[in-house]
C-alpha cells in the first residue's frame, strides 16, 4: 500500500491530465498560425467558410504569385527595407552590447566588492521599469538632440532592454568557466594577452555566441522603443506589422507580413535552442 503511494508521487512519467495539458498548450501556441497561413494563400475567404471559397491556385490565370505574397515580396510593402533595418540595427546593438557587457560580466562573476548586489539590481532595472515610461522620456531628449528618427537613436535605446539579458547570460558563462585553466596557463608562463587569446576566448566562445544571438533576438523583437524613436522614418519588421494591423483588421497581405515577421524568430529558435543555458533565466532579483 505504502509502496504504491511512493510510486505515484515519484512518477517521472506524465499523468493523463498533463498529457492533455501539453497538447492544449501546443494547440494554443501553434493553432492560430494555421488560419494565418491559409489567409495568406486565399483569393477570397468569406465568412462563415472555414476554408477559403476561392484559393489562389484556382485563380492562377489572374495572378502568377499568391496575391498577398506578390505584394509582400514587392518593394511597395517595404518588407525588404524593414528586414534590412531590423538585421542592421540588431547586429550593431549586439556588437556594442557585447563590447560593454563582457568586461562587466567578468568582474561580476569573479570579484566580490561592496555594493555588488546593488549594482546587479541596477543592471536588472530595465527589465522592471515600464518601457513606455523610458521610451517617451527618452524621446523628448532625443528630439532635442536630433537623434529621433535616426539609426543612432534607435541603436542607443535598444541597448536598454538588451543589457540586462546580455549581462545575465555572460555572467553565467564566466561563472561556469572558473579560473583554473587561466591560472594554469599563467603558471606555465603565458602572458596576459596569450591567456586571453588562447585560453579564455575559446572557452568563452559558445556562451558568448549564445548571449549575442539572444541579444540580437531581443533587439529584433523590440516594438515600442523603435516605434517611438523611429518616428515613422525608420521602420523595422515589428513596426511595419503594427502599421498594417493598427486598424484592428487583418487582410491577406497583413497575414503574409505576419508570417515574414515570424521567420527570423523561427530561425533564431532553431539556432539558439542548443546554445541558450536555461539556467541563466532562473536567476532571481537581487538575491
Amino acid at each position: 500500500m505504502a509502496r504504491r503511494k511512493f510510486k505515484s508521487a515519484l512518477n517521472s512519467r506524465l499523468s493523463g491530465f498533463q498529457k492533455i495539458y501539453l497538447l492544449l498548450i501546443a494547440g494554443f501556441i501553434l493553432g492560430p498560425f494555421i488560419p494565418l497561413l491559409i489567409q495568406s494563400f486565399a483569393f477570397r475567404w468569406a465568412w462563415p467558410d472555414l476554408l477559403p471559397g476561392t484559393w489562389w491556385l484556382e485563380q492562377r490565370e489572374k495572378s502568377l504569385l499568391p496575391l498577398a505574397w506578390d505584394y509582400v515580396l514587392s518593394p511597395y510593402s517595404r518588407v525588404w527595407e524593414a528586414t534590412l533595418n531590423t538585421v542592421f540595427i540588431g547586429l550593431v546593438v549586439t556588437v556594442i552590447c557585447l563590447a560593454i557587457c563582457l568586461p562587466a560580466a567578468r568582474v561580476l562573476a569573479r570579484e566580490k566588492f561592496r555594493g555588488k548586489s546593488a549594482f546587479e539590481f541596477f543592471l536588472s532595472m530595465p527589465l522592471i521599469v515600464p518601457e513606455a515610461a523610458i521610451g517617451i522620456a527618452l524621446l523628448m531628449i532625443f528630439i532635442r538632440l536630433g537623434l529621433a528618427g535616426s539609426y543612432t537613436g534607435i541603436i542607443i535605446v535598444h541597448l536598454i532592454p538588451t543589457i540586462p539579458y546580455m549581462i545575465r547570460m555572460l555572467t553565467a558563462v564566466y561563472q561556469g568557466l572558473g579560473t583554473d585553466f587561466e591560472e594554469q596557463a599563467m603558471i606555465l608562463g603565458a602572458s596576459r594577452w596569450q591567456v586571453m587569446r588562447m585560453v579564455t576566448l575559446p572557452m568563452l566562445l559558445p556562451g558568448v555566441v549564445a548571449g549575442a544571438l539572444f541579444t540580437f533576438l531581443v533587439s529584433t523583437n523590440i516594438f515600442l522603443l523603435t516605434f517611438f524613436m523611429g518616428q515613422g522614418k525608420i521602420i523595422t519588421l515589428p513596426t511595419l506589422l503594427f502599421s498594417k494591423i493598427a486598424g484592428g483588421t487583418l487582410d491577406a497581405s497583413a497575414a503574409g507580413i505576419t508570417l515574414v515577421v515570424t521567420v527570423p524568430g523561427i530561425i533564431l529558435l532553431l539556432i539558439t535552442e542548443r546554445f541558450i543555458k536555461e539556467e541563466a533565466f532562473g536567476k532571481g532579483f537581487g538575491n
Binding site: P32, F33, L36, L217, T220, N221, I222, F223, L237, P238, T239, L241, F242, I245, L250, A254, A255, T258, V261, T262, G265, I266, L268, L269
Partner: peptide, 10 residues
Amino acid sequence: MIPYTVGIAL
C-alpha cells in the same frame, strides 16, 4: 522569439 505584434495579428 517573435514580436508582440505577431501575437496581436494572431
